[in-house]
Amino acid sequence: MIPSLEQLAERFSRLVVTNAVPSRSPLPVTTGSAPPVAVATPAAAAAGQTAAPTAPPCPVQTVDYPLKGYHLDVSISPRQVVLAAEILDQNGFALDTITGVDWIAQNEMEVVYDYFHPLSVLRVVIRTRIRRDNPEIPTISPVFPGANWHERETHDFFGIRFSGHPDLTPLLLPEDADYHPLRKDFTA
């Protein structure tokens, strides 16, 4: 099953509408097309999410591939990453990578999930922001077992805790490492 970009955009619009992201867009520059129509559905509401008003900069953007290297850019709240992963899993996506970005000026951590589709060209980026002083986000490793290592690596480098993760011991860093080198305030 190969989903179309429009279907996916529509699906994620429904998701983000049910629980809006923080109002700040992750990155100022966007070359996206018009915001997709946001429709709240009873099914999404029944998923236990509390409804909130839509965020002003559109959280679901279809992106011009040659300029960015991906097709769909979705900003969601940290609580929704598992739900987003499930949607993508049902649509046949594979996990490309998980990484973090330390936005120290805004005192936030961004967690970026890259997905690709093994049967089509579609590339989807899911991003979410969490507080920098207590970075915690649910794990998606039950959905994508491959996320296990990516999350461990992100924990190594950024100190982001993935709640529910089976084993967050350092993967690439030494086993006694208590530092997180990719934090911008890290000094060797």
Binding site: L27, V29, K68, G69, Y70, T99, D114, F116, R123
Partner: peptide, 22 residues
């Protein structure tokens, strides 16, 4: 580079290699 994040994927000998620059 203009602010933003950019991906570029290639088929390396071992598979998909992607660089994401911010």
């Amino acid at each position: 580079l203009p602010a933003g994040d950019y991906c570029y994927a290639v088929e390396a000998a071992r598979g998909r290699h992607m660089v994401r620059v911010v």
